[in-house]
Nucleic acid binder design. Structure first.
Lengths: 237, 237
DNA sequence: CAGTGGTCTAGACCACGTC
DNA sequence: ACGTGGTCTAGACCACTGA
């Protein structure tokens, strides 16, 4: 365990426990460095981390303070987003209905978004994700077949991301997302139990590996009254 | 100008100009530190910055590489989001129609989101933002009156965020956002030129100062076919 | 094994706010 | 003037990868 991570953990704990109360000033960096027995640079790295998380803020010439809104506290680790639905809802039953599973050469727009050549095939997968027996998300996904190998019927019924991460050993680097509202289409009516005038929330994304190679293009559609997308945005000053 | 910012700028330029091509390895940190005449710690800080922006990735024991998708390149600085519509569309005419402007004690849910006591009033402002003479966003905003002072008819016709930042000297720290799809309501029909069955994209947010004090709660509604919300998400490894 | 990036040090000086 | 956080150094050692 790196020293700055250990120190950051301890500082997070002190804030959560109220040892450093909201709005109050922390001890200065020199005092903290002495307390933890590290150099000031190392201590500052720990401080930088929890500042990025939005727990504290700093004023040069004044001090370091606990931020007032513990609102977006340490609870929701962003990594969950890529862990799959089963991890996001540990207390619910998550099932999948496979609507379509095929391998093919992608249409032009998708080929270009995934930066593919003409001879590179993709898996095309449509799944309805069902939570506690209610239809929740209608996924339409294209995976680059050369990267996301060995997709089987068994895997697509469970967590594809577990397979990508654990079996294939690929590392996810990030995603580009676009969130729309949309009119519902025939497939929505069938699968999401809605009618022609039900608004739909759609999350469209391209997901990349750490080296910048795109490996997935997908859209995820839900009824307007079952899902919303949340973001906490902290400005780097 | 800080040294690590200067170095980061230069490295960004080299990547943009193709001097370091996509997928290629950069010189190692010691060589770069010597070239720029700085210590390795300072050079690494510059490298860290552009890695967070998603331009490069690193493999310990191997090297530092230019990421393949220069897609989400340095173009779109996120700070724009808080600069107001007039800055986001510099080539278009941005107008505002004031629908409602009032000062009052907020309803309970908003009082709690803004962490206010019973005796703290808020401004309530409804504006239609018009771009190139087309209705675009219907804003419904509550400002904490104790923080966002001296709102006048003149200011609300132009940029409120300029007033907050420049005149009042407040520093924005971040925001918590929720993005929904919704059915349209009567006000939408009137102001956004749509009918009863037009889906609406709504961005609901609480905006905070750097010390964590919330100062704004707002919703921004648009027709589904005029706006979408984009995010680039880079995972810290 | 050589070469890479990651961590850490003990100190120095600077920029800023407050008194 | 003083105390705060921000930057920077010159060097050390470690962890990992690939030949």
């Amino acid at each position: 365990m790196k020293k700055y991570e250990e120190i950051a953990d301890e500082l997070r704990r002190r804030i959560a426990d109220g040892e450093y109360a909201e709005g109050e000033m922390l001890p200065d960096q020199i005092a903290l460095a002495e307390e933890f027995g590290v150099s000031r640079m190392t201590l500052k790295k720990a401080i930088d981390m929890i500042a990025m998380e939005g727990l504290i803020f700093r004023k040069r010439g004044v001090g370091t303070f606990v931020i007032k809104s513990a609102l977006w506290n340490s609870g929701d680790s962003k990594a969950d987003e890529y862990a799959g639905l089963s991890k996001q809802f540990p207390n619910k039953t998550v099932k999948s209905k496979i609507i379509l599973f095929d391998i093919l050469f992608p249409p032009d727009n998708i080929q270009s978004l995934l930066m593919l050549e003409d001879n590179q095939p993709v898996y095309h997968l449509q799944r309805l994700r069902i939570i506690d027996d209610k239809p929740y998300i209608l996924e339409d996904t294209y995976f680059v077949a050369g990267l996301v190998k060995d997709l089987t019927e068994d895997i697509i019924h469970h967590s594809i991301y577990d397979h990508i991460r654990d079996t294939l050993g690929l590392k996810i680097g990030g995603a580009y997302r676009k969130i729309h509202a949309d009119r519902s289409n025939e497939l929505d009516w069938q699968e999401l139990a809605c009618d022609q005038h039900t608004p739909i929330l759609e999350v469209e994304q391209v997901v990349y590996l750490t080296n910048g190679t795109p490996f997935e293009y997908s859209t995820a559609r839900s009824r307007f009254d079952t899902r919303s997308y949340t973001i906490t945005d902290i400005i780097k000053q």
